[in-house]
Design a protein around this nucleic acid. Sequence first.
DNA 1: GTCTATACACTGATAGAC
DNA 2: GTCTATCAGTGTATAGAC
Lengths: 188, 188
Amino acid sequence: MTTSERLIESTRELLWERGYVGTSPKAILERAGAGQGSMYHHFKGKPDLALAAIRRTAEELRAGAAGVLHGPGTPYERIEAYLTREREVLRGCPIGRLTMDPDVVASEELREPVDETLDWLREQLAGIVEEGKEQGQFGPELDGEAIAATVVATVQGGYVLARASGSPADFDAGVRGLLGLLAPRSAV
Amino acid sequence: MTTSERLIESTRELLWERGYVGTSPKAILERAGAGQGSMYHHFKGKPDLALAAIRRTAEELRAGAAGVLHGPGTPYERIEAYLTREREVLRGCPIGRLTMDPDVVASEELREPVDETLDWLREQLAGIVEEGKEQGQFGPELDGEAIAATVVATVQGGYVLARASGSPADFDAGVRGLLGLLAPRSAV
DNA sequence: GTCTATACACTGATAGAC
DNA sequence: GTCTATCAGTGTATAGAC
């Protein structure tokens, strides 16, 4: 792996663990096994390196979610697969958590990939809900975009519950509640 | 207001705006108009002051939520009132956001009031759902504790969506989706 | 109780040698 | 490309004067 790659990967890990404000260039360099000079040669500074790291994490998240959302199964099953997907719950969402970082939200550039990712996720889910409505699996009264927002919010909020208690089961409880509400009548 | 009070209030504001990692004693002192000595006279240090601030914020949150949850109305209406309650959405949840702070989660003491508050909230909501089931407003298949987790998660995740896009409407979309799913059949 | 002075490691960045 | 040296400012805490 090149030094530049190692810097990006180390930054991704630290952003996930400690957020942007809690991550120092020094910590990144130690983890990457590089000196100050390397970082400032490849990147303009901390924000520039963080941007590269966030963009890569966003891409990875989208790719992973797309695999589940556009996989096999009925609309309900695909939403269920997304919600019950294996996650490192106690680590939180590597993208969603950045919204609680004051310096990320304050920077148009750093916030952009975060916004784009969550937006993309909601679009995919909204499409699946509409598909389910056409197939009669979901009632016509459901608002695809609103349900999509609820699904994403339940996941993001599930991380909050789990990290507060230290127990992944609290994430699962939120998901279980939502799936119960979404379940096609015939399946209840 | 006493100096000690000003320190706690300043800390509460900064923890909400910038989180624990992003808040320095220096910033607290400047906002409170106090010197170093005052802070270390009244508190053992940053964690001790933060604990006092978090506890107070937690109490306030509980009191506010209790007013809505145990107010007038049917179980559904009270959950609706909680979900659509006026919030400073873009500021995020002053308690929930702390779960994304590595130093808060790493400290048993600092995490405790956060955990306790979200737990209390879920208990109240679970009780209301059970009440609604007894009254026939909610179907008997609903799991009160799971629905409660979903409700709290939707709120916490709604903050994430809104802060990502910079638009409170995204919080509202998640809430609207959940309310649509929760609505008693007769009300649809 | 409150203040200033002091301490020392860390933050984020630049300069320049190799 | 990568390293070390250096820097002004900040983070967190202690000491001691008033």
